[in-house]
Amino acid sequence: MAKMTDATYPQCRIVPARFLNPETVEKLLNRLLEVGGIRKLVLNGQRIPPTVPYGPARGQPNPHPMRRVIRVGDQDVELQVQVGTILLELEDRAPIDGIRKACDEVFTKFPYSLSEGKFMKTQATVSDYAKYGPGADERILGTTDPKSRGGPLIIQGTK
């Protein structure tokens, strides 16, 4: 149960009308970093596997132009999906205008929608429990697939 002292952080969702190229994602994320005030960020989309997952060509390498490493801040991020939705958790509501401005700058060829709501999980699920145990850090819940081996990527801010 949530305690009275628990802070609730505002969350946002950016849905562009098209699936994004890695270059656009790189541009947007760097703009968002400039805006700041973001606690968590999740890139959602269709997964692009490194090898062909099934069919007669199963196991063969799957070169894909949308699966590549992008540079965000001073970190390299390997995209595993073709980004379709971006989820954000913010420190407070102040950066939302900045985020909207950043989106307006990046998404010039097609529309997007920016909505405020609740989009990430706040409690550990059974999968989270199996992976992280009883004392899971709430900050990493919902940022990464608990079934994958990789963890979330931490980009150091100015704080």
Partner: peptide
């Protein structure tokens, strides 16, 4: 697409191509 056909109901890519996990055509 003979296998891994997923993509018909998804948004298009920026260049207007249908999503294809295996990127058979570019």
């Amino acid at each position: 697409r003979g296998a891994t056909v997923h993509g018909h109901s998804l948004r298009l890519a920026e260049d207007g191509m249908m999503f294809d996990m295996l990127q058979r055509c570019v």
